[in-house]
């Protein structure tokens, strides 16, 4: 949960690196992994908030230490993805599962869109140029080529 929360909290405008992204069919389990989707993430945040608010002060401090470790990890590798977005060795991408257009316009020449972008209010904040999003519902998405 902390990992999910920090991913969504820290990915405010997560850039995706170009990852030799190639079209690929959406495997059947894509909806499995997304069960609950963003509304599920919101529900988790709400539940976690209730748990932490009711915790004893010492345990609340321990929750915070867990978050700080998670934030150091998630924040640093989102930062690295931004740092390496234009490099020869992109580090990390969010394949998009929530968007409007087809994969065809998300060519390898453009940065791959972020999974969080389409569901991410910071998309409007950052105003960064992005490739068109892909959508799971149309059966297309981006992913790295075989290593």
């Amino acid at each position: 949960m902390l990992r999910l929360a920090t991913i969504f909290a820290l990915c405010a405008a997560a850039d995706a690196g170009r990852c030799a992204c190639v079209p690929g069919a959406v495997p059947p389990n894509v909806t499995t992994s997304l069960a609950g989707g963003n509304n599920g993430t919101v529900a988790l945040l709400s539940a976690l908030r209730r748990v932490v608010q009711q915790a004893a002060p010492c345990h609340r401090a321990l929750w915070r230490e867990a978050f700080l470790l998670c934030a150091a990890w998630e924040g640093s590798h989102i930062a690295l993805s931004r740092h390496e977005a234009a490099a020869a060795q992109p580090y990390f991408v969010f394949p998009t599962f929530c968007g409007e257009s087809s994969l065809a316009s998300a060519s390898a020449a453009a940065p791959a869109p972020s999974a969080v972008d389409a569901a991410d209010p910071a998309f409007a904040i950052s105003q960064r140029p992005r490739a068109a999003s892909t959508t799971a519902s149309t059966g297309s998405r981006t992913r790295c080529g075989t290593p």
Partner: peptide, 9 residues
């Protein structure tokens, strides 16, 4: 590879 993808480096 679904919700996120690490690129091998």
């Amino acid at each position: 590879g679904l919700q996120w993808t690490y690129c091998t480096t």
